[in-house]
Amino acid sequence: MNTKSMAMLTSINGSDHSQLNSLQKSLLNDFQKDLPLSPTPYADIAMQLGVTEAEVLETLQELQKHQIIGRVGPVFQPHRIGTSTLAAMIVPKERLQSVADYLSSLPEINHNYEREHHINLWFVITATSEAHLQAVLNEIAQNTGIKVMSLPILENYHLDFSFDLKWRNE
């Protein structure tokens, strides 16, 4: 990646993405699934896009550095390995940051959001066993003194986890 597009990345981070170059856009939109299972997946992608393997790797490293991509890796189907639940709490405003920081520090918690509702803190707990999940729920309730509402998944209706960035329409 050249210096100019790196500078652009810094500026688009968190705002306008119209300045992403076409390689960045293709990688972000078209390779959210089916990473080639060949010894050289990035070279395969490069060949499809008509660029070099080095360009693909550099671009991915930059996108990761700027937190535009979280990782290149697996997304697991919930409940196939272990179990998870969506949990929610009513946290007084003045304690929100500290309770949220505590939750974020737990490795079992992978999503943690404040939402606009009187039930204001929503987080996902993932664990390899039901017993572990319960232990984490109990630990959170005990350490915060706040009641935790647990809302486990009963059925999944959405089967495609990739996200169309819709750049083709722009």
Binding site: D16, H17, K33, H66, R71, V75, F76, I81
Partner: peptide, 17 residues
């Protein structure tokens, strides 16, 4: 077998606007 739903680039939507 469906344990891995997808393997690829995981995009952070918030960072993309």
């Amino acid at each position: 077998i469906g344990v891995i739903k997808r393997l690829g680039i995981v995009v952070r939507h918030r960072q993309l606007g």
